[in-house]
């Protein structure tokens, strides 16, 4: 396992004759944020589903650290509008865990009694995150967590994921189309287009010709530009986050 929370090796998935995931190696270690990035139809979601045990691979092996607790945030929720269910009840369907604490961590404690139908995109994503947190996960798998969320909301959501990682030392595996917000916070980026195009630290991937070929030559440049910009934003608005980090790094005690 080499210290991986989860590791997939040479994973293959076919639909008929078409190979949609082609010998992909992927893994995430505790405390690491690994981002899967790639165009539509690159096999990102399918790769996650294989790792989660929701789809059987046609080739390759998957190893999980023993007793691994997984929190999963799906891309979309298939809940039928005819099913009346409150946010708290939905989160509680995870079976184990503290509903109020999870909702609080995800920042949606105020809508606990609200019905699931009629949540905004941002609220829904945070409720899904709350459910993923219920089992005190050692691995968080997030499939396009910022879907339907505006840019500031996305930034806040990724900041929250980063904070969770810092606090619980969980491994995070996330899928995104998004080049900027996500990659800036990742430890490791895997650029996927059926096969692994390039992989490595965000900076290295941004400079890789394969990345440029996939996302256009300007993507790497704009990424660098964004990172600069992002640092700047943090300096002026990072007050709250800094205070947070402080408290946790001082005494070092952990929740859970």
């Amino acid at each position: 396992m080499n210290g991986y929370a989860i590791e997939g090796r040479r994973l293959v998935k076919r639909f008929g004759d078409r190979v949609v995931v082609d010998h992909v190696d992927i893994g995430a270690k505790p405390g690491e944020i690994v981002t899967l990035i790639g165009p539509n139809g690159a096999g990102k979601t399918l790769l996650l589903k294989m790792l989660l045990g929701l789809t059987v691979p046609d080739g390759g092996t998957i190893a999980r650290s023993p007793g691994l607790r997984v929190g999963y945030m799906p891309q979309k929720l298939a809940i039928d509008p005819n099913l009346p269910i409150s946010v708290a009840r939905f989160v509680g369907l995870a079976g184990k865990g503290d509903v109020a604490a999870s909702l609080d961590t995800a920042g949606v404690a105020d809508i606990a009694a609200a019905p699931m139908t009629g949540l905004s995109g941002g609220e829904l994503q945070r409720v899904l995150l709350a459910r993923a947190l219920m089992r005190d996960p050692q691995l968080l798998v997030l499939d396009e967590p910022a879907q339907g969320v505006d840019v500031t909301g996305q930034d806040a959501l990724y900041a929250l994921v980063g904070e969770l990682r810092d606090r619980t030392n969980c491994a995070v595996l996330l899928v995104s189309h998004d080049l900027h917000l996500v990659m800036a916070r990742s430890n490791h980026v895997v650029c996927l287009n059926t096969h692994v195009c390039c992989t490595g630290k965000p900076e290295a991937v941004g400079r890789d010709p394969a990345f440029a070929a996939l996302f256009g030559a300007r993507a790497g440049e704009s990424l660098a530009l964004y990172r600069h910009h992002h640092d700047h934003v943090h300096d002026t608005h990072g007050h709250v986050h800094h205070a947070h980090d402080h408290a946790h790094s001082h005494d070092g005690h952990r929740h859970g």
Partner: peptide
């Protein structure tokens, strides 16, 4: 009920 709300989530859990 969990499976009816979302099958994938229920399976992961």
């Amino acid at each position: 009920l969990a499976a009816s709300v979302d099958e994938d989530l229920a399976r992961v859990e």
